[in-house]
Amino acid sequence: MATHPQICGDGFSCGLDAALHLISGKWKPLILFFLRDGTKRYGELKRSIGGVSDKVLIQQLKDLEAHRVLARTDYQEVPPRVDYALTPLGRSLADALVPLCSWGAENMSEVASIVAERDTLP
């Protein structure tokens, strides 16, 4: 008989489920990582991340703002100037990703090898 995770009072099965709810998606963890260094404008953030389309980056930023993980400051200037910064909740979440970043750096060669091997499979 299969067992199902028990849902806690907040609707999540565990703390990891709650955290993943906020950072789900390919780009959100990278946004958090690059904002750890401080406030960034949209263009700086896009260049830091690389490979993300404007449409997707804008949506991911809106999601993170709606989840109170980052704050968006619009200076109401022409040309437009908008900054993004982590909230205290976002800072603590970004700090929690640091060990995962370290693991990735330590195992990057092996992961790259595994990915390359899988890409050659029929």
Rank of each mutant, 00 (worst) to 15 (best):
G9E: 10
G9I: 01
G9Q: 13
D10G: 07
G11A: 06
G11H: 13
G11T: 04
G11C: 03
G11Q: 05
F12P: 02
F12R: 08
F12D: 02
S13E: 12
S13T: 11
C14E: 11
C14N: 15
C14P: 00
G15Y: 15
L16N: 12
L16M: 13
D17S: 15
D17F: 07
A18I: 00
A18E: 14
A19C: 09
L20H: 14
L20R: 13
L20I: 03
L20F: 12
H21Q: 03
H21G: 02
H21V: 00
H21M: 09
H21D: 14
L22C: 06
L22S: 12
I23K: 05
I23T: 15
S24Q: 13
S24I: 00
S24W: 12
S24R: 15
G25E: 09
G25H: 11
G25M: 12
K26E: 08
K26Q: 14
W27N: 10
K28H: 11
K28I: 10
P29I: 07
P29R: 14
L30Q: 11
L30S: 11
I31Y: 12
I31D: 08
L32Y: 12
L32S: 06
L32N: 02
F33G: 02
F33K: 15
F34L: 07
F34E: 12
R36F: 04
R36L: 13
R36T: 01
D37P: 03
G38E: 09
T39K: 15
T39S: 14
K40L: 15
K40Q: 12
K40N: 07
K40R: 11
R41W: 02
Y42F: 15
G43Q: 04
E44V: 01
L45E: 03
L45G: 04
L45C: 06
L45Q: 03
K46N: 05
R47L: 08
S48V: 01
S48A: 15
S48L: 14
I49Q: 07
I49E: 08
I49D: 01
I49K: 01
G50T: 01
G51S: 03
G51R: 01
G51P: 08
G51Q: 04
G51M: 07
V52K: 06
V52W: 14
S53H: 07
S53Y: 13
S53P: 05
S53F: 10
D54Y: 11
K55A: 03
K55V: 13
K55G: 05
K55P: 00
V56P: 00
L57Q: 00
L57C: 01
L57T: 00
I58V: 11
Q59L: 07
Q60L: 00
Q60Y: 09
L61G: 06
K62I: 15
K62P: 02
D63V: 10
L64Q: 05
L64C: 09
L64Y: 08
L64G: 01
E65D: 06
E65L: 06
A66I: 04
H67G: 00
R68S: 11
V69G: 01
L70S: 02
L70F: 01
A71M: 06
A71K: 10
R72Q: 10
R72F: 01
T73F: 08
T73L: 06
D74V: 13
D74C: 07
D74E: 10
Y75M: 14
Q76S: 06
E77G: 05
